[in-house]
């Protein structure tokens, strides 16, 4: 991995100390030697208390998200790209073109500076890929044991084109439901690392900003009703939020759900239901059925969308629930996740 050029004398200061958060010389040094070189852009380099931005439209999407993942590094990504991609995807779900992000860091005393550099570098790589700039930020240090290594908060703003109207109020009976890729990869990747379960086949997190997919969809499809990224709580929780919010019945065809065989096997082994496992590079799209095939072709032509599928439909606008149709015609209601998903034990 190519890292930003950092002349900090790592022999002398190879870990974060309380002084790095003191607001004095060490803080300035950290910002100048790690954050500025990585995020390099004209807003950040104004070195002001905040970034002054001129936006091309007054219709703005604004979102924030905090990242506390453990471990910091996992197959397919790390907390840095997660923090960028998560906020970018939230903006995309509003139908916005993501433009600017802020980044707030809470560092635990003793964190290796090299770890921070790697994370910051990943953030920049992810931001460049997603077409956004990290224009303002903050760093705080807490005593050893008061946080777990490194927490990041990102907030983001994007502009929404005038003709875009996306939201729960648009979801109606007859809508098709599309998912842009296989489900459960992120959660299983984190779990396999965290619990040292050591699966033979390393399952990669799906963390990605879906900027291209959403941009192409919004320009190529005349009407999109809702976009949502099913992160924590998995697909079922997001579907339930939509069903409740829009007061509709959503029917999902179990056989159509894309699940990678290693994820399926890992879920079987750990007693997890892939429907409840977290994703970080996935989008649920509700749109009029007549555009579903066309949308599918567009998504499949983009990175992270190759395995997109139509997984269900909105069947009713009287009852708010999500129903899973099983292979032999049985149906079951899928509820929101209760507590955290716990493993079966025998």
């Amino acid at each position: 991995m190519e890292l930003p050029n950092c002349p900090i004398p790592t022999q002398k200061y190879d870990r974060i100390t309380m002084a790095h958060g003191g607001g004095g010389k060490m803080t300035t040094r950290l910002i100048e030697k790690i954050f500025y070189p990585a995020f390099s852009n004209r807003w950040l380099e104004q070195a002001h208390d905040g970034a002054t931005l001129n936006l091309p439209s007054s219709r703005i999407a604004f979102t924030t998200d905090s990242f506390v993942v453990n471990p910091l590094f996992f197959p397919g990504g790390n907390i840095g790209d997660l923090a960028v991609n998560g906020t970018v995807n939230d903006l995309l779900c509003c139908g916005a073109t993501p433009l600017y992000l802020s980044a707030g860091f809470i560092l635990e005393e003793g964190l290796p500076i090299d770890t921070l550099k790697k994370v910051v570098h990943s953030m920049q790589t992810a931001a460049a890929k997603a077409g956004v700039s990290i224009v303002t930020g903050d760093t705080k240090v807490v005593e050893f044991g008061k946080c777990d290594k490194l927490f990041i908060n990102t907030a983001g703003i994007g502009i929404i084109p005038e003709n875009i109207d996306i939201g729960l109020h648009r979801v109606v009976k007859g809508d098709a439901v599309i998912v842009t890729g296989p489900i459960g990869n992120h959660g299983v990747s984190i779990l396999s690392t965290r619990e040292s379960l050591g699966f033979e086949s390393s399952i990669q997190s799906d963390t990605a900003a879906l900027t291209q997919i959403v941009a192409k969809l919004l320009s190529g499809i005349p009407d999109i009703h809702i976009l949502r990224d099913p992160t924590r709580g998995g697909l079922s929780s997001t579907l339930n939020e939509i069903a409740t919010g829009a007061h509709v019945t959503i029917v999902i065809d179990e056989a159509a759900l894309p699940i990678d065989p290693p994820v399926k096997a890992a879920c079987d082994l750990l007693g997890l239901d892939p429907l409840y496992v977290a994703n970080e590079g996935l989008m649920l799209i509700f749109l009029p059925n007549e555009y579903a095939e066309q949308a599918l072709r567009i998504i499949r032509g983009e990175p992270h969308g190759e395995n997109a599928r139509i997984i269900g439909r909105v069947t009713d606008d009287k009852r708010a629930e999500v129903i899973l149709e099983l292979a032999l015609g049985q149906t079951r209601v899928i509820d929101m996740l209760s507590g955290e998903q716990l493993p079966r034990i025998c």
């Binding site: 239901d273 099983l326 049985q330 149906t331 079951r332 079966r344 025998c346």
Partner: peptide
Amino acid sequence: CGGQTYALSRYRI
């Protein structure tokens, strides 16, 4: 077995 109860319910057997 509870694992069987779970599977009976999950697959709506």
